[in-house]
Design a binder for these strands. Structure first.
Lengths: 245, 245
DNA sequence: CCCCATTTGTCCGTATGTATA
DNA sequence: CTATACATACGGACAAATGGG
């Protein structure tokens, strides 16, 4: 048992939210696996050095997220727990990487269009300035929980059918295959962690103060020509990343 | 100019803190590089849809961090900006990876001891249960800003002098070399992003609600024998990670 | 030098949210 | 449920400092 420090006051983050974050972390760490329940409100209040009402506010927030369910007379039951492990390697594939960890993978195309590449996108895809690219905005989920929101760019000349194929097949890898690209590799990944903005809170069904991990990545075909540049925002508290070098 | 969404109310996270987080991100993204200053308080208040006083609270927090400095009559100057890029590859080296990005790298040994390996540590280092390991607690900084806090474990039988060497040489790589290990490679890295706990806030000089990236990694010698298992907490808003696969 | 627009600093009061007892 | 204390957020007004005509 790790001695947990008292929450901090006057930091701009309400005590109930700090406690909600700690309990969420403890749940995903498996600290409460022995009972399958969160400790009683009075115990948590003692542990964090706050009033029981404050703990109740925190648990209400977690119940709102669907993470726990309070049952009068019994306690607060844990409805969901662990993080999904997402492997990052030279052959990173979203669906395949999650295989076995979730029963059902969902993918939803929110929007798509053809646009002139910004200087950032053109540089990443090694295209001339102003080249046309296909932009896809998607959200992926595991067992109904949103895991990531992505904006991806593909060279329009080479992959004109990305949007249509993605909708039908539900996977970038399959959409590539349907357009004659059988294999591709990850050439670069940059990662930053930060607080979610309002749009991400909504897309990923997060609560305020939540963390997203933003990954900027480039995939290329086996000849080294870039085929995809994407910006993926992961719901940090639902994911763990394993880097395979 | 990206249209920035209004901050959200009644979420348990104070508006001034949400705004501080957004402005910190904008600074590190270089959004204000043209002037070297944060926009005027009145402009920020309009942008976020809040009162000027609320913006002032946010800027006061950033000034407290040393990120900006307000000058009456002129504006709020940016004192520091970008994130340090930390490369993760098969040959990840802390000091070498940061080379050139910061003028001065600091490393501090907070504590060291010999302990019996926990089951987690023993498994990672491929040691028999109960084997003795050297535990090092360190904090590393760039140009005076704490960047990471690490707890590292080494097989005590093979590297009995880790603590003494580290203090003298200021680097794990050099401490290894002084004990006859010339080369080692990263065999696994697991990454999680979460809110910092009270201890991490203190060690890394962060303000409440801050994000840490926790990396669990194993290094092994060229024969594949594990030589180090470590748990490093990075100050997320000061770092960017590049994964080289 | 003064004048003036801009920008930060400080003060007042008031309403609401958070936390305790 | 009540009552109390403090933090947060707003609105307005004015002072103080800066830099450019």
């Amino acid at each position: 048992m790790v001695a947990r420090k008292a929450v901090e006051r006057q930091t701009g983050v309400a005590l109930w939210r700090q406690i909600a974050d700690r309990v969420r972390l403890a749940i995903s760490n498996g600290d409460y696996d022995a009972t399958g329940m969160v400790p009683p409100e009075t115990a948590l209040a003692r542990e964090f050095g706050v009033n029981r009402h404050t703990v109740r506010s925190a648990l209400a927030a977690l119940a709102e997220e669907g993470l726990v369910r309070a049952v009068q007379g019994r306690g607060t039951l844990i409805e969901r727990k662990g993080r999904v492990t997402y492997p990052i390697s030279r052959r990173t594939r979203f669906s395949a990487g999650l295989g076995g960890q979730v029963k059902e993978i969902g993918s939803q195309l929110l929007a798509h269009r053809e646009v002139q590449a910004s200087s950032e996108v053109a540089a990443a895809l090694a295209l001339p300035p102003g080249a046309v690219v296909v932009e896809l905005q998607t959200v992926s989920s595991g067992d109904g929980r949103p895991l990531s929101a992505t904006i991806a760019y593909f060279p329009a000349g080479r992959f004109p059918e990305m949007a249509q194929r993605y909708v039908r097949l539900g996977s970038v890898t399959k959409a590539f295959a349907a357009q004659g690209l059988d294999d591709y590799v990850r050439v670069s990944t940059e990662i930053v962690a930060r607080h979610a903005d309002a749009e991400e809170l909504k897309l990923l069904k997060l609560s305020a103060g939540a963390i997203v991990i933003e990954a900027l990545s480039v995939n290329a075909d086996v000849e080294g020509r870039p085929v995809e540049y994407s910006r993926t925002r992961f719901a940090a508290d639902r994911m763990k990343f394993r880097i395979e070098t």
